[in-house]
Design a protein around this nucleic acid. Structure first.
Lengths: 147, 147
DNA sequence: CTCACTGCAAAGGTTTTGCAGTGGG
DNA sequence: CCCACTGCAAAACCTTTGCAGTGAG
């Protein structure tokens, strides 16, 4: 995914953050990787271009970006946190074979769920958002055969 | 939730595990707590009755129980892992105010989703299970918890 | 120029591991 | 009895924090 540095700078300023080189690099990295990376994967990716970015800075920056709404955390059941640079509403496909987390968009599905819960609701709970986790495995290309 | 120790022992044996006192206590604790506890919360709860259970044992046992299918991990976007002793299919309500994770069962919803995806499917992905995360907050004054 | 931000390293929290000893089957 | 399991403590992660120095606005 091609991401323009100027867009990144604008995005940072829009939420009232200083556009430091580190923040630009980190935000750009997540958008380019586009793969729900861990802090460590981000660090590794960044170090190829800018070896002088500190670990603490990456974590601090990620927290800042999440607080400012420029990033989202992705829920996992493994040890370390993952980050998502795609802000619009979407769901996730968790592949049990390759471990990847892929994005899934479906307006029909969202409409179906909205209809369902606007009628029914949930007792003692006010719904603000619904996210679906699909568990399974990818079937593209080399993995077409069954186990 | 009342949980019979003999049932726990049977459950452990059924999957081919030795029914050690530690494993019984840990599995029973999770089922009694019924609150998606962290390893630390489990340890604290257990220590009231059996102070001689080691931290390492709790983690090892939790891993073992998950591998054997007697427990599930719960996805979170916070630092530490949570565990679920309820094995049948269900969804989770994440309360942004009290931080609790509650269970949600809905056969109509599951049927709706099954219908939707059995017709449609997802390109390049074989669905094995769908879990919904509801984000929002609880609206009950006091909860008559029961499941 | 100034203060929010960074680098660095140490500390903090959670989970894993190594090993000698124990008890469940 | 024997070996899978435990206790204990150290180590390995992952993330946060403190502080002096720096550069974005």
């Amino acid at each position: 995914m091609k991401v323009d540095t100027n867009d990144i700078i604008q995005e940072l300023r829009r939420v009232g953050l200083r556009a430091t080189p580190q923040r630009c690099t980190i935000l750009q990295a997540i958008k380019q990787l586009n793969n729900h990376p861990t802090a460590d994967e981000i660090l590794e990716y960044i170090h190829k271009k800018q070896p002088n970015v500190a670990v603490g800075t990456v974590y601090n920056t990620l927290d800042t970006l999440v607080s400012s709404g420029l990033l989202k955390r992705v829920k996992t059941d493994s040890g370390s946190m993952r980050y998502d640079g795609i802000l619009h509403h979407h769901h996730h496909l968790y592949c049990s074979r390759c471990g990847k987390i892929m994005d899934y968009n479906d307006a029909d599905l969202d409409e179906l769920l909205n209809d369902f819960f606007s009628k029914k609701g949930i007792q003692n709970f006010s719904i603000q958002g619904i996210r679906l986790d699909f568990h399974g495995h990818c079937t593209s290309k080399q993995q077409t055969e069954k186990s």
